[in-house]
Structures are given as structure tokens and as C-alpha cells.
Design a binder for these strands. Structure first.
Lengths: 193, 193
DNA sequence: GCTTCGAACTTTAGCTTTGAAGTCTTCACT
DNA sequence: AGTGAAGACTTCAAAGCTAAAGTTCGAAGC
């Protein structure tokens, strides 16, 4: 007997969500279970995390309509942002995406097969390999960007220009703090300067 | 000949980062390559995404010091937040974490082995299975929370209480918009109400 | 009471990623 | 030239996830 129906909400269909629980309810549960919690902090952190999940789901759907995965989109993005001549080595790509070189090797294999990038040995240094964006790859990236910006504009629709400026400024401040100070295992952010 | 040295920055060691590129430089590259871009929007979106990466790396290091993975921490979190008696079925857990039931089965296998949760058939309905937090699991969650709150406080250190309130409020507005409106493949956020 | 449908979990196969080992170049020193 | 160290990628095995069966139990309908 087969099992002809899928009763589950798969990650891609139903977006990964903490289910029908509002942010407020979640924070209330946190306070109930962990009394030392600062609800103001938790609200920000939880919202950031949940926002990001939704964004990734949205991007995933969009790239899927273009026959790509988010993983491939990221590679295209890194290559485009590197500027002309739109080529980088596997190791450099891996660093920029936060992957191991091994994973990059496989990812590139696929993308070469799909015609999004080419892989060629560097002539001047034959240890090196150059991954270069193809015309088709660049076009795909552009299409993905057009979709993404539509979504992003929708997301921020309720914010005035002043709100947006203020939000961008605050987030940048936070980011500077995290990126310039390496947190150790205990969570302390040690400044590097 | 073995290869005795690791010259790569592995995802866990060196945090996944778009490498030594500031947010400002990234936005400039976007504008260079995609002229229709609204830099104000891109700043917010990019900062959100990069912030989240750093947060996840930080959480990952912290849970690692407790001998857990982020994946396991998420399961503990869902169980704790469900409230007493701290038990849920695999399917419900999968939904809350955005995983397939199959992945949940394996994850639970591991966690049962580590004594973080127990798995028992429901007596009243023997199709159902109850995953219940153990005392040790709850204690681990508490320790992880203590570490997490230290990091979170460090992260927000530069923000005044007013800044924090404002940020929490804005993020909540965005979140409400994304969670209550299902984006379709083209990025449009259709309200459900 | 038997049968069929449906729900809830588990199993299996295939894919992506990690971590470690391996290969091939290049560079520096002798 | 000749050797050794180091760098840049690839290969391989194991872990974790998804998608698609498969299994078991409970609830309805005949």
C-alpha cells in the first residue's frame, strides 16, 4: 500500500515558522520560563531571527521560479559584486559565502553544468582555478535581483523614508559592533581595535 | 603524504562573512552593478542578513561549549516554550522548527541518546509519540539561555533604552507584515485578512 | 465486525555539506 | 638543479536533511 497523500507542511511550502504563535506570545513564554530575561532585548533578537527566516523563504521561492536555488544565487551574487571581470577562485568564493572549499567544489560542479559559471585553470599560476560568471549567469542574477527588490520594497512598505533611514542607521551600528569585535564562547564581544 | 595543516577558514572558526568588505562597500558594489537599486532599502536588508549570520555563529559557539549543536538547542527551546508538561509530538516539533518529520525523527534519536529528551508512546493513542524534556535537557537550555543573554546584551550595548524600544517596535511592524501576508513567487505580499 | 481511509511516525534513497586526507603547483633555500 | 614547505583545489567518508514511500494505529462507514 502506497502512501498517496502528503499531510505534512514541508519547509518549502509552509514557511518555517514557530507556528501560530505571535511574537508577543513567544516573549511571554520566555518570561514565564526564564525570569532573568529582558523582554526588550528578547523582542529585538527574536524579531530579527524571525524576520530573517521569512526573508529567506521569500528569496527561496523567487529563485526557484528562475530554476535556481538560494545557494546558487549566493554564488552569482558574490561574483557580480566582485566586479569585472567577474571571476574569483573557489577558495575565495568559499570564504565569502562561509562554506568549506569542498562544498564550493561541488556547488561549482553543478553550476558549471547549468551554464551559470565557467571553471578554468589560471594560466599564470596553474594551482589556481578561476570561476567566471557567464552571460547567462549574469542575466539570472539580474532577474533574481529584480524579484528581490520587489519583495524588499513590499516588506518595507509601511515605513516612511525617515523610519527607513533610522532603521538602517541603527542596524549598521549593531553590525559594526558584531563584525569588528569577535565574540568568544562566553558571548563577550572583545573589541579588536 | 598527509596534509597536516588546515589553511582554510572553516565556517565554524572564522564566522561566515562576506570577507573584509564593509556594508558600505557592499552597497556601493550593488549600485554599480544594479542601477535600479534603492540603497536605503538595500542597507536595511543587507544589514539584517549579515546581523543574523553573526548572531547564529555566536549562538553556535556558545551551544558548542555546552556540548550541543544549534539544532539541538532549537528543539529544547521549542519544548520549553510549549510550557509544562514540556512535551510535544515529533510532528508538532517539526512544524515549529520548519523541518520535515523525517529530520525530526533522526534529531530526536540523537537527543534521546544524549539524555536531553525522552521518547514515549502516548498511552491514550498509540499512534502518537511524546517527546518530553528531561531535567538535564531543561538545565542545558537554561545554561544556553544565560550565555545567549550575555551575548545579546553585548550586542545591544550601544543602544539606549529609547533606541531599543524604537527598534523593537519597527522590527515588530515588519514582522507582522511578513508573517500575516504570504508572499507569492513574484514577491508580492498578499494580505490574508 | 470488516474494511477503508486518514493520521502520525519511521524508513529509505539521494543530495548537500563538513572534516580530513590527497594531489598538484609554486616558492624558497641549498 | 634538488629538496622541502606551503598553498589551492579535489576527493572521500560520514553526518544531516528532504522527498517519497512504508508501517501502524484509530475512526468511520457498510
Amino acid at each position: 500500500m502506497p502512501s498517496p497523500y502528503v499531510s505534512y507542511s514541508l519547509p518549502m511550502d509552509e514557511p518555517p515558522s514557530e507556528v501560530e504563535r505571535t511574537l508577543e506570545a513567544q516573549i511571554a513564554a520566555y518570561q514565564r520560563e526564564f525570569h532573568d530575561l529582558d523582554p526588550q532585548v528578547e523582542k529585538i533578537v527574536s524579531a530579527l531571527s524571525r524576520l530573517n527566516r521569512r526573508m529567506n523563504v521569500a528569496y527561496g521561492r523567487q529563485t526557484a521560479t528562475l530554476g535556481m536555488s538560494n545557494a546558487e544565487w549566493e554564488v552569482l551574487k558574490a561574483l557580480v559584486l566582485s566586479g569585472a571581470p567577474y571571476q574569483l577562485g573557489p577558495g575565495e568564493l568559499a570564504k565569502r559565502l562561509g562554506l568549506t572549499p569542498a562544498a564550493m567544489t561541488h556547488r561549482i560542479d553543478r553550476m558549471v553544468g547549468e551554464g551559470l559559471v565557467t571553471r578554468e585553470r589560471d594560466e599564470s599560476n596553474r594551482v589556481r582555478v578561476n570561476i567566471e560568471l557567464t552571460v547567462e549567469g549574469r542575466e539570472k542574477w539580474l532577474e533574481a535581483m529584480r524579484l528581490a527588490t520587489v519583495f524588499e520594497e513590499e516588506l518595507l512598505q509601511d515605513l516612511s523614508s525617515e523610519d527607513r533611514t533610522a532603521l538602517g542607521e541603527v542596524l549598521t551600528r549593531l553590525l559594526k559592533r558584531v563584525e569588528h569585535a569577535q565574540p568568544d564562547a562566553s558571548g563577550r564581544l572583545k573589541d579588536l581595535d
